[in-house]
């Protein structure tokens, strides 16, 4: 038990730290944007719901806070957590630290299916619900995942797996662009922002649906911490510990595709969160134990995306950056450092 108490203190420290940062980012996010709203007004709006009535002096501010900033912030947190979790699951599955939904082309696959849904299917049905979008994104995620798995089966090298993923990503993106090019202008107004990744335009329905989906999945993943820990040792050892590896593989693929698909359905493809966050979290915790890494990755992903979204909104306000622009700036160097380190060892 030499390492015991030290490790627990460290875990506690990381979780408390993440919670504090999360709190600060919540305050910061609500407090900033292209329209300046004084802190006192924000407090009144949030805690006393002042400005709800149309005649109220704070009505515009109320709408900005409740209809724009809050839903956006919550979805960025929830979906950011989901992305980090998807990344962690994929890294576990492939035994590869730079696996993630974006680099493996899973996000792009989801994007393609959602684009098809929004442009083509909308011509035949009246409206597409969020759940249908999630379903389409999930299907797209699974199909591109299938291609990645085929590639992974024939090539064992870590770098080749990524090349395969990036190629799938390019193909899906090309097809999506093709569809968008020939779509009616009216269809693509929303699509344009979304296809580059963005948390803008979320409403409370989105918040509710995404939160429920992600939270339920999160709980399932957390309850699977034990077999995941066995799987981290490699498939042969996992099986000798009593895990039914064949079934568990399918579970991992389903869960990670579902998480990645859900994020894409709501916010489009977002790069690097899935790789960078679990990596940083493991370094901070100094362990890869799923039972702590799963919740910490979720919180880390939430914090990371809230921060990136804040930068995307505020850095060049009123012009908004796409979220991937920001996540890539922070995430890409981390991935490059990881690759170099891997090469060294």
């Amino acid at each position: 038990m030499k390492t015991g108490p030290v490790a627990y203190a460290r875990y506690t420290g990381v979780f408390v730290g993440l919670a504090v940062v999360m709190f600060l980012l919540v305050v910061w996010n609500i407090n900033s944007g292209s329209v300046h709203i004084p802190v006192r007004d924000i407090a009144k709006i949030i805690f006393f719901r002042e400005g709800e009535g149309e005649s109220d002096a704070l009505h515009t501010a109320f709408n900005i806070i409740w209809k724009l900033r809050m839903p956006r912030m919550i979805t960025s947190a929830v979906l950011g957590g989901a992305l980090a979790l998807a990344g962690f699951l994929l890294q576990t599955y492939f035994g590869n630290p730079i696996a993630g939904p974006f680099v493996l082309g899973i996000s792009a696959g989801s994007k393609l299916f959602v684009a098809v849904m929004m442009i083509i299917v909308l011509n035949y049905v009246k409206s597409v619900s969020s759940l249908m979008m999630v379903a389409a994104a999930f299907a797209g995620a699974l199909i591109s995942m299938g291609f990645v798995l085929l590639a992974a089966r024939s090539i064992r090298q870590m770098s080749m797996l990524l090349v395969a993923g990036i190629m799938i990503s390019y193909i899906c993106t090309a097809v999506t662009e093709f569809i968008i090019t020939f779509a009616k202008d009216a269809d693509i107004v929303n699509l344009h922002n979304w296809s580059r990744g963005s948390f803008s335009g979320m409403d409370w329905d989105d918040v509710l649906i995404s939160t429920v989906i992600v939270m339920v999945t999160f709980v399932i993943v957390f309850l699977l911490a034990k077999p995941i820990s066995a799987y981290q040792m490699g498939e042969s050892y996992a099986q000798s510990m009593g895990v039914n590896v064949k079934t568990f593989r399918v579970v991992l693929i389903m869960l990670s595709s579902f998480l990645a698909g859900t994020v894409t359905a709501f916010a489009g493809p977002i790069s690097f969160v899935g790789i960078a966050v679990p990596h940083i979290v493991k370094l901070l915790l100094n362990t890869a134990k799923p039972i702590v890494v799963i919740p910490a990755s979720f919180m880390g992903g939430a914090v990371f995306c809230m921060l990136c979204d804040y930068i995307a909104r505020v850095a060049f306000a009123p012009t908004e950056l796409s979220i991937s622009t920001v996540t890539a700036i922070f995430g890409a160097p981390i991935v490059i450092i990881m690759l170099i380190k891997k090469q060294e060892s």
Binding site: P97, K226, M241, T287
Partner: peptide, 29 residues
């Protein structure tokens, strides 16, 4: 086995402790 153990950031204690897997509860504590 002859295979390498894949887990990252594991102490030897952690590796040995994975042997207790079949006997621990549903969260593996």
């Amino acid at each position: 086995l002859t295979e390498r153990i894949k887990g990252e950031l594991m102490t030897c204690y952690d590796v040995v402790a994975t042997g207790r897997y079949p006997y621990t509860g549903s969260l593996g504590i």
